[in-house]
Nucleic acid binder design. Structure first.
Length: 554
RNA sequence: GCGCCCGUAGCUCAGCUGGAUAGAGUGUCAGACUCCGAAUCUGAAGGUCGCGCGUUCGAAUCGCGCCGGGCGCACCA
C-alpha cells in the first residue's frame, strides 16, 4: 500500500523536475508513513523536508511544487495538504483501499508473500543446545523465535534451511557418560561418590534406568575405561532423542541435525587450520595454536588447538562455519542465547577470515526468560539441575500460549513469562484475544449460512457498500499485512507480527461491537462478510507464522 | 576494569530504523448483552521516555558521559 503511495510521489517528483521546479540531483528514499492523527490524512511524506537541504529551498515551497503534480490514475486521491514544516499529507478515497481487498481473497494464505528474498538460500541455526540435558525454557524461546523466523523468511521469498548443531564432542560428553555410569552403579546399591561437577539432574537417573533395561547388570563389574564409551554414546543419544521429542511436541521442526562429530571424520578440520595458516591468520604460541581474531573486531586472539593437542570448541565452530559457507548459503543466521554474546565478535572474525561477507552473517541474541508463578520468580539453576524444562511448560500451558508468549516480545528484551497468566482462558491472555477473533468470525459465518448467505465471487460483491470508518480502518490494516511481514523479515524481528495481529483483531472487535455483519440488507451483508473473510485469512496467515492454532470454536 | 542487552504509565511492554499532541494490554474507577459468541466493547484517570550534555528544521529513537538492572569476559563446552 505504501509502495503505491511511494510510486505516486515519485511520479509527482518526476513531473516537477520536467516542469523545471526541482533539480533532483540524486533522489533520496521517499519515506511514507501513516500519521498518528487521522485528521492529518491517510499518508504522509517528509520528502519535501529531506529535499530542502539538497535543493536549498524552503521545504514548504518544495512541498507545494510536488503537491501540484500529485494524482492517481483512478482519481482516488481525495485531498492533499501541506502541514507544519513541510509534511505532505495525502487523503485517499475509500475506493483506493477497497481496490486492494479482492487480492486478499484471491491469494488466501499466500497473502503477504513477497519476493524480497529473491530465493536466496538462508541457513538458520538455532537451539543447538548441548545433548547433556533436557531443554529448558530459555531454549524454548530460541526454538520459537527460530522456527517463526524461518517461516517469516520463507514467506518473504527466501529459501530457508533450519539446522540444529549438536555438540556431541568434548569433555562434557565424557562427564555426561560418567554421570550416567555412576547413577547406574547406584541403581545396584553401590556406594558412589557423585562429584559436584557432574550432571546433577534427576534426568540422569532416567538415563541410567534405561541402560539398566537394555543391559541389565552386565556392565556392573567391568572397568570404567571399558564401559565409559558406551555410557557416553548411550547418554548422548538418549538425551538427544528427548530433545527431538520435546521440540516436536512444541511444533518445531528442523531440516537437519548437524553432528559436531561429523566434522572430525576425515582430516577436514586440520586442512582448514592449515588453510588459515597459509593465509597468515594462525600462529603458535606457548605450545598452542591461535587464531588472530583480534585483527578483526575481537578483543583478543583465541586458541584453536590446545597445548595438549586437543581442539577447542571454537575450533569446531570454525570448521562448522566453513562447512556452512561451502554449502553455498547466501545468508547465515545464528540464534544464540544471550549468555553467548561474548562469542559474537570472534565468530564474526572467523567468518571474515573465511572470506564470507559480514553483511550476510547475522547473530541474533535471545535474552533470558524469567518464569513467574504467583507473582514470584521461579528459581532456576542449571548447576543444581533444578530448572523448569520446556516440556513442563508446554504441558502446563499448551503449545499455543507458550509460543505466543515467547514471540510477543522483542527478543533482545528480557522476558517475564507469567505461567499463571499464560494458563488463563480469560481476557487478560493475549493469545485468546486473537484466537477469539478468529472463532468469532467463524461463528458469524455459521450464522450467515444458517440464514442462507453464501459468498459469491468477488465481482458480484458491491464493495463500495463498505464505508463505515471502522470498516475502512480494518481494510487499511489488513492491507498493511504484507508490509509488516517484509519489515519484520528484514529486521529479523518476529515480535512485530504478534503486535500487528493484536492491533488487527482489536480493530475487528471494536467494529463488531458497533456494527452488525449479518443484516436484512443482502448486498451489505455480503460485502461485510467478504471483508471479514479477508480478515480471517490474514489472521490465519499471521498465526500460522507464529505456529499458533486457529480454532473455529473455543 | 572491559564488552553486549535493557531502562517509556502502578505492573508487563510497543513505538514502523530521525517526524507532528509518546501508544497498547493489565490494574483502578464508571458504563454496554430481548440483537451475528460479553474470552468482547465504550469512557475516565494514569508520563520529567533513568539523568545530563551534544548533533539539526525536529530526538524515546543518533553520539558522548554518568546512574541503575541483567549477562558475559578460559588452552570449558
Amino acid at each position: 500500500m505504501k509502495q503505491t503511495i511511494r510510486k505516486l510521489i515519485a511520479d509527482a517528483l518526476e513531473k516537477a523536475r520536467e516542469a523545471g521546479e526541482l533539480n533532483l540531483n540524486g533522489l533520496p528514499d521517499i519515506v511514507v508513513e501513516e500519521p498518528k492523527d487521522k485528521k492529518m490524512g491517510d499518508f504522509s511524506t517528509t520528502i519535501a523536508m529531506v529535499l530542502a537541504k539538497i535543493e536549498k529551498k524552503n521545504p514548504r515551497t518544495i512541498a507545494e511544487a510536488i503537491a501540484g503534480h500529485l494524482k492517481t490514475a483512478e482519481g482516488d486521491l481525495a485531498g492533499v495538504e501541506i502541514a507544519g514544516p513541510g509534511f505532505i499529507n495525502l487523503k485517499m478515497a475509500p475506493s483506493f483501499y477497497l481496490r486492494g481487498l479482492p487480492e486478499v481473497a484471491e491469494r488466501g494464505l499466500s497473502f503477504g508473500d513477497s519476493s524480497l528474498g529473491q530465493n536466496q538460500k538462508v541457513l538458520l541455526e538455532f537451539v543447538s543446545a548441548n545433548p547433556t540435558g533436557p531443554l529448558h525454557v530459555g531454549h524454548g524461546r530460541g526454538a520459537a523465535v527460530g522456527d517463526m523466523l524461518g517461516a517469516l523468511l520463507k514467506k518473504a521469498g527466501y529459501e530457508v534451511f533450519k539446522e540444529y548443531y549438536v555438540n556431541d564432542v568434548g569433555n562434557q560428553m565424557n562427564t555426561l557418560g560418567r554421570s550416567t555410569w555412576l547413577r547406574y552403579q547406584e541403581l545396584y546399591g553401590r556406594n558412589i561418590d557423585f562429584p559436584d561437577d557432574h550432571y546433577q539432574g534427576e534426568y540422569i537417573k532416567d538415563v541410567a534406568r534405561s541402560v539398566q533395561e537394555e543391559k541389565g547388570d552386565s556392565l556392573l563389574d567391568q572397568a570404567e575405561e571399558e564401559v565409559l564409551p558406551y555410557f557416553r554414546e548411550f547418554s548422548g543419544r538418549f538425551i538427544l532423542n528427548g530433545i527431538k521429542e520435546h521440540l516436536g511436541a512444541f511444533h518445531v521442526e528442523f531440516d537437519s541435525w548437524f553432528m559436531e562429530q561429523s566434522l572430525y571424520e576425515g582430516d577436514s578440520v586440520s586442512r582448514i587450520i592449515d588453510g588459515l595458516k597459509d593465509k597468515g591468520y594462525v600462529y603458535e604460541k606457548d605450545g598452542a595454536v591461535w587464531l588472530k581474531t583480534a585483527d578483526f573486531s575481537d578483543e583478543k586472539d583465541r586458541v584453536v588447538v590446545k597445548k595438549s593437542g586437543e581442539r577447542t570448541y571454537f575450533c569446531s565452530d570454525i570448521a562448522y562455519h566453513q562447512n556452512k559457507i561451502r554449502r553455498g548459503f547466501d545468508k547465515i543466521i545464528n540464534i544464540w542465547g544471550a549468555d553467548h554474546h561474548g562469542y559474537v565478535a570472534r565468530m564474526q572474525a572467523v567468518v571474515e577470515t573465511l572470506g564470507f561477507d559480514l553483511e550476510n552473517f547475522h547473530t541474533l541474541l535471545v535474552q533470558f526468560v524469567a518464569l513467574k508463578r504467583g507473582g514470584e520468580k521461579v528459581a532456576m539453576s542449571t548447576r543444581s539441575g533444578e530448572f523448569i524444562t520446556l516440556d513442563e511448560v508446554v504441558r502446563e500451558v499448551g503449545v499455543d500460549a507458550t509460543r505466543f508468549f515467547f514471540l510477543m516480545r522483542s527478543s533482545d528484551s528480557h522476558l517475564d513469562f507469567d505461567l499463571d497468566l499464560a494458563k488463563k482462558e480469560t481476557p487478560e491472555n493475549p493469545v485468546f484475544y486473537i484466537q477469539y477473533a478468529h472463532a468469532r468470525i467463524c461463528s458469524i459465518f455459521r450464522t450467515a449460512e444458517e440464514q442462507g448467505f453464501a459468498l459469491p465471487e468477488v465481482s458480484k460483491i458491491e464493495l463500495s457498500l463498505i464505508k463505515e470508518n471502522e470498516e475502512l480502518d480494518l481494510v487499511k490494516k489488513i492491507l498493511a499485512y504484507p508490509e509488516t511481514i517484509q519489515k519484520s523479515a528484514q529486521a529479523l524481528e518476529v515480535h512485530r507480527v504478534s503486535h500487528y495481529l493484536q492491533e488487527l483483531v482489536g480493530q475487528f472487535h471494536s467494529y463488531y461491537n458497533k456494527h452488525r455483519i449479518v443484516t436484512d440488507d443482502r448486498e451489505l451483508t455480503l460485502a461485510r462478510l467478504f471483508l471479514v473473510n479477508c480478515l480471517r485469512t490474514t489472521i490465519r496467515s499471521g498465526l500460522g507464522l507464529l505456529g499458533v492454532s486457529t480454532p473455529e470454536k473455543m
